[in-house]
Write a protein that binds this DNA or RNA. Structure first.
Lengths: 208, 208
DNA sequence: AAAAATACCATACATTTGTATGGTAATATA
DNA sequence: TATATTACCATACAAATGTATGGTATTTTT
């Protein structure tokens, strides 16, 4: 019964979800307007009315910040999986979403985070396995010992991150794989983000 | 550094926790006043100032509903839990809520599903580790090979489920633990639910 | 081509909200 | 006894908030 949202409405809904799930406090119209650069709260008001009419939120009249999500009852929310990441030897990244998975709403996805599916077993001693979905936050600075997603020569890897003097060391927990040392000025090296969570669905048998 | 709260202040703090954790929206001063029967918001304001001075909450000036709890981390919130689930040898279930455990409360759980945190390592070959959070659906019939949560003699276990002629076999993936055979008519045996997913936050270091 | 939906803007207004300020009474503390 | 602290009240007020109305421009649908 629920109609589709427009792109702008979807963006606003994403912001609402982020605020409600994250900070625990829904935003006011003014805050939403500020966030999206609107000069007027009425614009937001109209968008919220549309989103509510389409059944994605519920608002209690006249109460401030009274935005409730109605999709909370959905246990799983479809999210696009952007690509596959090699925890073992590097694999190529796919430019667009290769799949969508049903992510449980308990798994917090900070805004701007994305999902990648892990291939290979180099992180099995860090309890990440082939087939697992990692939640990647690209807006955090990596600390030593954290698990990061990095791009190296057009391939993506998931490894533990250690900062050295002039180099960055990417280590597999699995001793079968050699540590990778990268010069900091290496042109095609980039930290994509930090793995903030791992999710695995038990619905299908694992590929191993 | 935190001083003790008076009884009234404690009551108000409890209400704040209830509102923030439950509805996802902190109350306004007027709502608090209404709840406690105060005729004036100033009374509430004074109580909140006291509670804040004692370090239990934090408020951002002039913003409506801007009451933050300083008690706990943002991602994990204390919640009453039925008990801990042993993936290794059975642990006793506690009759009441054991303490407060770390359950992600970012989203409200559907009424019929719940989360449990796994203790022990008997499922490590099924890629479930101590500290992981398993998502349990109690409304599914278990099939052979699925991972279930079961109660046996007042203890809860997470094992792989196999149905035999007159018995049910619960198997640990870890060979250190012996399979458990249960007669189907065993009075104190019950399948609690099926593990449909596993979630792990990387924010904290794993306990191992 | 006409109508409807979308996406903004400006202005306006009644309430809500947070925050003073000043007062009374009871209780605890020095 | 004197003095804080606690626990309420009433009144007042600026700012924030949700809502309403009317307008323009673009895009989509009919």
């Amino acid at each position: 019964m629920k109609q589709d949202l427009t792109k702008i409405q979807k963006n606003i809904l994403d912001y609402l979800i982020d605020r409600i799930k994250g900070k625990g406090m829904p935003p006011t119209l003014a805050e939403i307007a500020r966030h999206f650069g609107y000069k007027n709260r009425a614009t937001v008001q109209q968008h919220l009315t549309s989103i509510e009419k389409k059944g994605f939120i519920k608002r209690n009249a006249k109460l401030s910040r009274s935005i409730e999500l109605t999709l909370d009852e959905k246990f799983f929310v479809p999210k696009p999986v952007l690509g596959e990441v090699a925890a073992g030897n590097p694999l190529t990244i796919y430019p667009d979403a290769i799949d969508t998975i049903e992510l449980p709403t308990i798994a917090r996805m900070p805004k701007d985070s994305f999902l990648l599916r892990v291939k290979g077993d180099s992180l099995k001693d860090a309890y990440i396995f082939s087939g697992d979905i990692v939640i990647v936050n690209p807006n955090l600075e990596p600390n030593n010992g954290q698990i990061v997603v990095a791009i190296l020569d057009d391939a993506a890897v998931v490894k533990r991150f250690y900062k050295k003097k002039n180099e960055i060391e990417l280590i597999s927990e699995n001793p079968e794989y050699e540590p990778i040392m990268i010069d900091r000025k290496h042109p095609s090296f980039k930290i994509v983000g930090i793995v903030v969570g791992v999710y695995r669905s038990m619905e299908k048998k694992k590929a191993g």
